[in-house]
Design a binder for these strands. Structure first.
Lengths: 379, 379
DNA sequence: CGCTTTCATGCAATCGATTGCAGTTAATGC
DNA sequence: GCATTAACTGCAATCGATTGCATGAAAGCG
């Protein structure tokens, strides 16, 4: 009486086997099959029957219908991963970190891009919750985000990764930005730099804000001069903005011998700006990055940077998320995991040259040097 | 009588509104609501009622339950994207190409990694079909793959992207490998190279095979000598294997002045091997890549390579897939789209030096040159 | 040997949508 | 003014699983 022919395991266009098919094959009720196939309820069924059901279900190639399962249980075993742009190479390792933790447990991952546009992000979050995702890993979040807050307050399991919100109620896994900046400043000072500029990132992002804060705090602690003429603000974490900021800083006088950039892409842009001006990194100016994204060890010059744990940050986020998705009974205390970072010294930093810095060069002579020095006076 | 309180649009832990909620709010049957909300069937309902329903549904924040929809219609509006490793930077642009084409139409994308392991791929494909995906974009496919073939023959919409199967029945969107290789050989010959080696990719992959075939064919056409001593085979498209192959080729004599690598990562490995040996690219040996993956324009030396259309290849695949998913009625003729490629000349290629090549150097003198020449004799 | 308890299984409701069919109402034709 | 048709809307089955409850049989007990 069945509309199609199940029974054969691999027929041409044959319907997928259902619980019912297995049930009639074995001669039991579908609820028995359901219980026998579910490890949680298997003990309710006579072992011999369980065996027969297992056999038949294998035979028929039975695979549970996800939609039916979701409809009934309200769980999809799907999570959403929201990134600004998968094309930005720091995100894929995070995504893999998430997937590798969750896939073995039967979860699938919906990956979506926001391009850093909050409105788009809001729309995307809507689609994801409409799809009934069990949890959300968000790498694109700004420091304040109403959509995320309402979702979280409604009980959706959410973890932000790499970035965090100001609201401490939203759990996060991030890197130790402050330590990274401190290490980097130490490194530069140890090389003899005293006049250090910075290209700060977008201050609406926790990464941008925290790295800049740390720069200010630690620079002062180390007795360095920081003034507005030594700070450029990038609105986007990309090469073009790095270039723009570097040019601005140079135009403003540029009495510095090193520049700490809030991430690798800004640093790359900064180096391009230097090159364009006929200056060289690190000979004239030391440039540092942050993140240690792929390939920055192979560029020219190899970038000195702070290595964040891109994969692990995603992996850890997935594990926290898992907790929140499963034992959603116990009320979730806010959780904030901060992973340690590591300084990676490469070729883009060097001791300040006798007469290095840009001031020297601003005053006319391109590749020649002058004596008027500010940098590395009495390191 | 309702278990929870819908009605308020944004309540605390309130249930999601269903068709039923909208129906009682308006005072019609749920089937009417369903039809009114579906553009296809909207015309069956009185306009005023449609308006009231639209109003109420907005008011209640109604969003259709995906699981219920899928269960009933057997369509999930979800597609699977299978890549070897999202961390490999040529894949993210393809994935974005797919997403950007499909997301506006309400499709979501499940991204999964195979790590190039066929067994893992098979298991992953199983999960995807178990989830009832409407279509599949596969970037990880080898030239022969039984799992894909059975899926396709059972009616699943499938497109392979970047790579293709030998079986012409499986639709694909790829790049013009042969043209890329031809352009590159032309470029090298124009520079004066006559002795050109190659590091071929995995021959189980269409990219590896086609690029190598093209190398052989066009090299012969151009009257170049190619012998076994000038061919290295990489089993994996990565830097380590490129390095290994380059070392082997050098150990074997290395009577060549340029080497064409089957992709950028192999080229990077080759350049590392040269550096390690104290040789320089392009002064001693010209090295070329394929793909133009991100950042190879910034490495040292900037890589001469063939630009494939990473984003467009994914984008086009999504569009073909869409056709196959929607009008699945008409029988699908095999489709193979091949996108044009472009030569990108950068710093890793140069005319052969007077006494360049490795033979010269193998015979003892490191950076010095000898007269015994094979290269660029009478170009 | 009869009664209670336990264990295994079946029954049927349910999740939230879609859709063929039936029924109602209104409109039209003559 | 009545019959016929058209236009809406409602009814109810259905998709495939899960699960509380009921029922049946077997086992234990006195």
């Amino acid at each position: 009486m069945n509309k199609d022919n199940p029974g054969e395991p691999d027929g041409g266009g044959s319907r997928r086997a259902t619980l019912k098919d297995v049930a009639v094959a074995v001669g039991v009720h579908i609820s028995t099959v359901s219980r026998a196939l579910n490890p949680e309820t298997r003990h309710l069924i006579t072992p011999q029957i369980v065996d027969k059901i297992a056999e038949a279900s294998k035979q028929l190639g039975y695979q549970p219908n996800t939609a039916a399962y979701s409809l009934r249980t309200n769980r999809t075993r799907t999570i959403g991963v929201v990134v600004p742009d998968i094309t930005n190479s720091i995100f894929p390792p995070m995504i893999r970190g998430v997937e590798d933790a969750l896939a073995p447990l039967g979860y699938s991952t919906l990956v979506v891009n926001t391009d850093g546009q909050p409105e788009r992000e809001a729309a995307i979050l809507d689609t994801l919750v409409a799809r009934g995702i069990d949890g959300l890993v968000v790498a694109s979040v700004e420091r304040e985000n109403g959509a995320i807050r309402t979702l979280a307050s409604r009980g959706t399991a959410i973890i932000t990764v790499n970035r965090r919100m100001d609201d401490p109620a939203i759990a996060s896994v991030t890197n130790d930005e402050a330590e990274g900046v401190r290490h980097m400043l130490n490194h530069l000072v140890a090389l003899g730099h005293r006049n250090i500029a910075t290209i700060a990132g977008n201050q609406n992002l926790s990464t941008g804000q925290r790295r800049y804060d740390a720069f200010l705090r630690h620079a002062v602690d180390m007795g360095l001069d920081v003034g507005p003429s030594r700070v450029g603000f990038a609105s986007t974490f990309n090469e073009a903005d790095g270039e723009r900021c570097m040019e601005e800083l140079m135009a403003r006088g540029g009495d510095f011998t090193a520049i700490l950039c809030a991430n690798d892409r800004l640093a790359i842009g900064a180096i391009m700006a230097l090159k364009r001006r006929g200056l060289s990194c690190p000979t004239d100016i030391s440039v540092t990055g942050f993140n240690d994204m792929a390939m920055v060890d192979r560029i020219d010059p190899p970038l000195t940077t702070v290595r964040i744990q891109q994969y692990r940050v995603g992996n850890a986020a997935a594990e926290l998320l898992l907790e929140r998705m499963t034992k959603r009974s116990e009320l979730h205390r806010p959780q904030h995991l901060v992973l340690p970072v590591e300084l990676v010294v490469r070729g883009s930093t060097a001791p300040p040259a006798q007469n290095s810095g840009i001031v020297a060069l601003n005053n006319g002579l391109k590749s020649e040097r002058r004596r008027q020095k500010i940098s590395a006076v009495k390191a």
